[in-house]
Computed example of a mutant assay.
Amino acid sequence: MAYGDQPRPRSVEIGASLLATVGVCIVGRVAYGVAVNLSQDQWSAGARGVFLVLNSFVLLFGLFVLLLGDQVRRGRTWAWITGLVILPFTILFGALLLLITALSGAIPWAGAGVVLVATAALITLTAPRATRAYFARTPAHPAPVQAWSGGRS
């Protein structure tokens, strides 16, 4: 059961899992890129440092997306809205990775993975009516408190 004893739709579970998978793909791409970079000797120390600093930002973003997936699964509306804002940018970034990798002659697994999973997550978190209704619900409010009348009846 979820917040307010309203059952969580399967589409929310799937969308949250896909959002967390996007985070895992981003973290995996960073880990792979750093491992490949550290195994090469053709980079200068300054260029390697800049590469590692930039990838640390991408790593933090990937971890944030992973945690965002958990919060969406828990039914947090703020996380759902944040995910809907972040996913199009993630698709754009993944498409850029896909293009750069394809133009260099390699197989664009990381870019393709990010684009496909992020697109599936965006569709799953926006298209089903049950998902939109689940996040558009109003939370249960406690009974109103009577105003204090100052001791007069």
Rank of each mutant, 00 (worst) to 15 (best):
P139L: 10
V85A: 14
I86G: 14
A133E: 03
V50F: 09
V53F: 05
A16N: 01
G69D: 01
R76F: 05
H141M: 03
F57I: 15
T90C: 09
V72S: 00
R74G: 11
I123F: 09
T119C: 14
A127T: 08
S17L: 13
F51R: 11
I86T: 04
W80Q: 08
G69R: 08
F61Y: 01
V145F: 13
A143N: 03
A35V: 00
N55C: 00
P7W: 01
A127D: 08
G62W: 04
Y32T: 11
G49C: 03
T21G: 12
T77P: 06
R129S: 11
L122N: 08
I81E: 13
G49V: 07
A130P: 07
L59R: 11
A2N: 03
F89R: 10
T101A: 10
M1P: 03
A121M: 07
I100R: 11
A127Q: 02
V85G: 01
L67Q: 04
A47F: 06
Q146C: 14
S44A: 04
A120S: 12
R129K: 02
S149P: 02
G69H: 13
Q146R: 06
G113M: 08
A45G: 05
L60V: 11
W78R: 08
A106P: 01
R152T: 01
A136P: 08
V58H: 05
V58S: 08
